[in-house]
């Protein structure tokens, strides 16, 4: 019996090794191409495993108009004019609604106004849209950390900051 068990265990190890990470998955022809495989698509809103270090500058919006409006909104944020930034960012989102960076910045502008609920929801939206882009995902979580900090959730905020520190822009 012991020999049978040993053989079984060896087989298990062998098969497991051959199988590797094989899953019964199929390719998805319409899936958006991510920049990194650090995060899986269906990532929930909970922090995932420690991502590998990556560049800290997120890819700017592909849409030139959205990119321009984002730059203008950033200037408004720097000038402490969140009202103006929100108007610009919403306009940008109407042009490019699936761009996570825009939602992230919108979260920041709302946070500047003290609207933590809106800031939190927009950060969540950014996380959901960031998909497999690990830099955007990381920065969106860092934005969420800012919101949590403002909401008094300091421990959670600190935890997120530690986890996504490599993505601090």
């Amino acid at each position: 019996m012991n020999i049978k068990l040993c053989i079984s265990l060896l087989c298990v190890i062998f098969i497991g090794g051959c199988a590797g990470n094989q899953r019964p998955g199929v390719s998805d022809s319409r899936a958006s191409s991510g920049q990194s495989s650090g995060q899986s698509s269906g990532s929930s809103n909970r922090p995932q495993a420690q991502p590998k270090p990556a560049k800290v500058t997120p890819t700017p919006p592909k849409n030139s108009a959205a990119k321009l409006l984002l730059a203008q909104a950033d200037t408004a944020i720097t000038r402490q004019a969140p009202d103006q930034a929100i108007v610009l960012l919403e306009r940008a989102i109407r042009i490019d609604p699936r761009e996570a960076l825009l939602w992230m910045r919108l979260s920041r502008a709302h946070l500047m106004q003290g609207h933590t609920t809106a800031a939190s929801q927009h950060a969540r939206k950014a996380i959901a849209l960031a998909g497999s882009d690990s830099v955007k995902t990381g920065q969106a979580w860092l934005q969420m950390a800012e919101v949590l900090e403002a909401q008094g959730e300091r421990q959670q905020a600190a935890s997120l900051r530690r986890r996504y520190a490599p993505y601090r822009g």
Binding site: R23, P24, G25, V26, D28, R30, A31, S32, S33, G34, S40, S41, G42, R98, G131, S132
Partner: peptide, 13 residues
């Protein structure tokens, strides 16, 4: 405007 999915690793036929 076709729906664009995020890559998923749990798709099965």
């Amino acid at each position: 405007d076709p729906i664009v999915h995020s890559p998923a690793d749990n798709l099965v036929e």
